[in-house]
Amino acid sequence: MTGSRRAHPSRVPVLALGATLLITLQGELHDSMAEQLQEDLTHRIAHSPVTGVVIDISGVDIVDSFLGRVLAEIASHARLMAARTILAGMRPAVAITLVELGLTLPGLPTALDVERALAMFEHGPCPDPPHPRRANHADLP
């Protein structure tokens, strides 16, 4: 992070590994980029034989409710098109903050890192999460 006001970055790169798409989010993510990504992904999944999506957020400093919503929606759109999404590499500080914020992303499977996420696709014992409960993210007592 340079600390200077940068030009508006354009797109998040999407990498195809066989039938799996790998998305690496990094640093500051502008709202418009997140929305653009959501559109791009839906398009990619619809037009190619994608069965899995891994979103690597190990390089992301914060996840707020906006990005949380985008991630949850990507997962539920992908599921509608028969692709599974795994969120990989969340940092401890981000996880603690998200829980305190009240976002537990119940419909989204998670993995420690990309390697684990890819292994989950290979071995397949990734239990399909319950039906996405978009409206019910505050499932803490």
Partner: peptide, 20 residues
Amino acid sequence: TDGYTTGSGLGMGLSGAKRL
């Protein structure tokens, strides 16, 4: 209130921020 939203978010904005 948790879950209250007039916009496109998850309605955790204000109540969530308060907890942080």
